[in-house]
Design a protein around this nucleic acid. Sequence first.
RNA 1: GCUGAUGUAGCUCAGUUGGCAGAGCGAUUCACUCGUAAUGAAUAGGUCGGCGGUUCGAAUCCGCCCAUCAGCUCCA
Length: 647
Amino acid sequence: MAQIKVTLPDGSIKEVAKGISAGEIVKSISEGLYRNALAVKINDEVSDLNVAVNDDCNFKVLTFSDAEGKQVYWHTASHILAQAVKRIYPTAKLAIGPSIKTGFYYDIEFKTNVTQDDFAKIESEMQKIIKADFSIERKEMSKKEAKKYFEKADEDYKVELVEDIPDDKVSFYTQGEFTDLCRGPHLPSTGKVKAFKLTQLAGAYWRGNENNKMLTRIYGTAFDKKKDLDEYLAKVEEAKKRDHNKIGRELGYFMTDENIGQGLPLLMPKGTQLFETLTRFVEDEEKRRGYVRTKTPYMAKSNLYKISGHWDHYLDGMFVIGDEMKDKEVFALRPMTCPFQYTIYNNGLKSYRDLPIRYGETSTLFRNESSGEMHGLIRIRQFTLSEGHIICTPEQLESEFIGVLDLIKYIMNSVGLYNDLTFRFSRWDPNNKEKYIYEPEVWEKAEAKMKQILDHIGLDYVEAIDEAAFYGPKLDIQIANVYGKEDTLITIQIDMFLSKNFDMTYIDENGEKQYPYIIHRSSMGCYERTMALLLEKYAGAMPFWLAPVQVKVLSITDRAAEKANEIKDYLEDRGIRTEVDNRNEKIGYKIREAQLEKIPYMFILGDKEVENNVVSVRHRKDGDLGCKTVEEIVSIMLEEVRLKKCD
RNA sequence: GCUGAUGUAGCUCAGUUGGCAGAGCGAUUCACUCGUAAUGAAUAGGUCGGCGGUUCGAAUCCGCCCAUCAGCUCCA
C-alpha cells in the first residue's frame, strides 16, 4: 500500500497509508489528542477530521485552544442552533450562520415573533441534538441539484446563496435530519459541543443591506468546558460594569435629558474638567509642534458645502437651517472643519516658502446621525474634534504624515491608550458611485501614495475597502469598547480633491501655480469619544493627571476644618484640583465616599496631623501611605503630572 | 432608520387577575466630634416617560410619540 509523509508542527515526520482519514492520523499520534481534536490544518487549510489525506503535507491538529479550532467549534454550534430552530419552527427560513470573534450567530427569518424568552426552549432542543451525538457528514452536489434541493425545502436565502457560488460544486453538511449548505469545516459530531449559551437576539439585514428584509439574528457562544463558559459570561458581565455610559453617569461626568434630545449629552462639572484638561494638553502640544490655531464658525451658507462637495455627498448627515425652496439663504451646521480652514488658507497668496501650514482647531461639529445609532459619549450629534489640516507640497507629504503619526503616538501614550489601538487603511470602492467623488486616477494615486508611506514606516495595518472618506483614503486608528465593538478614534486622510474645488494654490520655485496636498488629521480624535474610552479603560479611576478631582481633604473633626481649607488653597495654588469634605460624618464614611468617587489621593486630617503639621495620605489603590508633609506629597504629585503617569 | 428589550422617588428596584403608590440606598433636619470603605433617630421626596383611547375605575389593557439599552445599517 502506498505511503505518504505527514510533517507535524514539531518537525517530526510520520508515515501513514495514503487515503487514510485525518482523524485516523490524529488517533495514531495520540489517543488523548484525538479526544480533544476538533479539526486539522493541512498545509494551511483547515479541514474536517473525516477528510482523506492523499499527499505529503504539513499536518496540525486543532483543539479548542487554537483560534481556528474555536472557529470550527462555533460554526458547528451555529448549525446545532439552526437544527434546533427548524425542529421548533419548521417554517423558519435559514440565511447564514457563521462563527465570529466571540462565538457564533445564525440569521433566520421567523414567521412568528421570537424573543429571548424562547431561548430556553431552543437551548433545550440544542441540548438534545448534542446528546444524540449525530455524526456530521460532508457531501457535495452540483449547483443545479443544490438549487433544486433548497427550492424544494423552501429555503429562499439558501437558493440565493447557491446561485452566488462561483464553483459548480457546492458542499453540504448533514447532522441527523438536518442538512445545511456550508463550506465547512465542521466537528466530526454534534456531541463534541459541550457548554453553550444563546446570548442575545437582534435584527440584522439580509446581506447587510438596509433595503433588504430584516432577519432575526440569534447570537450564542460555546466552550469545551462549562467552567470556561461561566468564566467568559462572568467576564462579559464584569466588562459591562466598566461601560462608560453607566459609570460616566454615576460618577457625574455627563448626563442626558429627553427634552434636550438624543445624541446631545451634557458634560457636568467633572466631565468638563476632564474635557478641558484634554483640550489644553492637545492645544499646547500642537502649538509646540508648529501648528497655528483657528477658531471658525459653527455654521455657514449652503454655498460653502456645495463647493466642498458635502452638499452632494454628505447632505443626509447635516443639520440644515432653512429650506432652499422658500428661503433666500440656507445655512447648515458644520459636519467638518475642512472648508473653513481652507477658506483661511485662501486669504492671501501663498508661496512654497509658506508651506507646510499646519492649522489646528478644537472644533465643535454637528452630524445628523440616525436615531438608532447614538450611544453614550461614543456616537453623538454634537461633538468636539481635535481637528486640523496640513497644507503641504508633494515633497513634504511623507514627513508631514509621519509627523502626524508621531504626534498621535505621543498624545495617545500620554493618556495610556496607545497600546489599545489598531490601524486600518481605509480605501474607496470604485463600485460605490454614490459615496465617492468619481475620479479613479486620482484615487489610485492617493491610495498608492498612502500605502507607500505606511509601508515605508513599517506600520502594522489592515486594509478595508469602501471605508474611505468621500474625498480620499484614510488611515483609521481603531479602538474597541467594553463590548468589544470597534470604533474609529482618530483618522488621518490624504485629500487630493478639495484643494481643486476650493482653488487652493501656492506658487512654486518656478513661479508656477500648484495645487497643494492636504492632510486631514486628528490628534486625540473626538474628545467625547476619547473620554468614553478613558472611562472604560480605567473603570472611572482616571490617571492622576487627568482626574477631575485629584485630592480630597477629609477632616476628622471640625477642629481640623480650618486647616483643611488652608491645605486646599495651597494645593489649588499649585494647580492641583482639590475638594474638602468638612461634613459632620465619621472618617470611615468620608473615605468610603471618596473611594467610590475614585479620587486618587485622600488627605486625612485630625488633631495629630494638625499638631505635627502633616497630612495622613491615603491612595485610592495603595491605601494608607502614612504621614507626610504637604510639601513632600505635593512634589510627588507634581512629578506624576509632569510625567503624565498612567497606571 | 430597522429588529428586540426597557422606562415607577436623586439611584437600584418591588408592585398579584385593572381597585388607597412601596422598599433599600441617597437627600434634609436633629443628636453624636468620631482615626483609614457605611453612627443613630426623625422628616421630606411621585404628572408611575408623554399624549390619546377602553373602563365606574389604568402604573397595570390598547394606540401613537419621546427617551434609554443591545444588535443591524451608517460613521469620529
